[in-house]
């Protein structure tokens, strides 16, 4: 398969000498939505952070290819220019930096890097006003510092709002569903569904099957102890919901997790 979109090959990563990712393999074709499920501590969030370029994790082996290019050599901002977006499990509060300024700067940096004209404040405001409604947040929130003093639910919606503005090619949602009530979950899922297209892929990392009822994945991968231990269709998510993760941990003889 040559025309793959996003592929992870035998990825090993550690933090302070502790091995967390132990040979992750994954294929995510263009336009598909894949879910990664798994118990706490299995390495799901580490994988998300490594893909986005967090420097505190050391990649010791393997590669991450986005449209054929190994992005491990790129800085986090260069990965963003390539169309990568990570919705954080714990969005960071940045006191004093307004959401409006931050996001406009982010959008224009990405546009500039891709040879597009920068948007001015008024164009940006028009776009922001439209998108902020979609996630059910008040316009006032644009003036507030990034994530500053937001409730857990507001932070998650704000992440999706940023996703709607930045329109990445590959979006990774790291446990965006945790801590959301059902209404907020519906809003988030609806926004994600609205972005689903042939040109865009999603990696939805979650502990629970609930969000997958709203964002139906094309494939489901199960991560256990730093590897993709099993992959399958949506049925696998249902099975996990019912039986938990224990049985997969026992079954961990599978090589790599990719369909062979």
């Amino acid at each position: 398969m040559n025309n793959f979109f996003f592929r992870i090959n035998d990825l090993h990563a550690e933090v302070e000498g502790k091995k967390i990712l132990k040979g992750v393999n994954l294929d995510l074709p263009k336009g598909e939505v894949h879910a990664i499920m798994g118990p706490n501590g299995s390495g799901k969030s580490t994988l998300a952070q490594v893909i986005a370029g967090r420097e505190s994790y050391e990649v010791t082996e393997g590669e991450i290819l986005l449209e054929g290019e190994n992005i491990l050599e790129l800085s986090p901002e260069e990965r963003a220019y390539k169309g990568l977006f990570l919705a954080f499990q714990y969005p960071v509060e940045i006191p004093g930096v307004s959401t409006l300024y931050f996001l406009k700067t982010a959008l224009n940096s990405i546009r500039k890097a891709n040879g597009l004209d920068e948007v001015d404040t008024y164009e940006f405001m028009a776009l922001a006003r439209e998108k902020v409604k979609e996630v059910g947040l008040d316009e006032d929130f644009l003036k507030r510092p990034v994530n500053w003093g937001f409730s857990g639910g507001e932070k998650k919606r704000a992440e999706i709002f940023q996703l709607l503005i930045l329109q990445p090619k590959l979006a990774i949602l790291d446990e965006t569903d945790s801590g959301l009530d059902i209404d907020a979950l519906r809003i988030v899922a609806k926004a994600v569904e609205s972005m689903r297209s042939k040109e865009r892929s999603f990696l939805v990392i979650t502990h629970y099957q609930r969000i997958l009822n709203y964002i139906k994945p094309d494939r489901v991968h199960v991560m256990v102890d730093g590897v993709i231990a099993k992959s399958g269709g949506f049925d696998l998510a249902l099975e996990l919901e019912e039986k938990g993760y224990g049985w997969i941990e026992k079954e961990l003889t599978f090589a790599g997790g990719r369909d062979l």
Partner: peptide
């Protein structure tokens, strides 16, 4: 400086120095 916040901004396309 909060490196977590720096990484957050960089992951959205804001240059490290900025």
């Amino acid at each position: 400086l909060d490196e977590e916040a720096i990484f957050y901004m960089r992951s959205r396309g804001v240059k490290d120095s900025l």
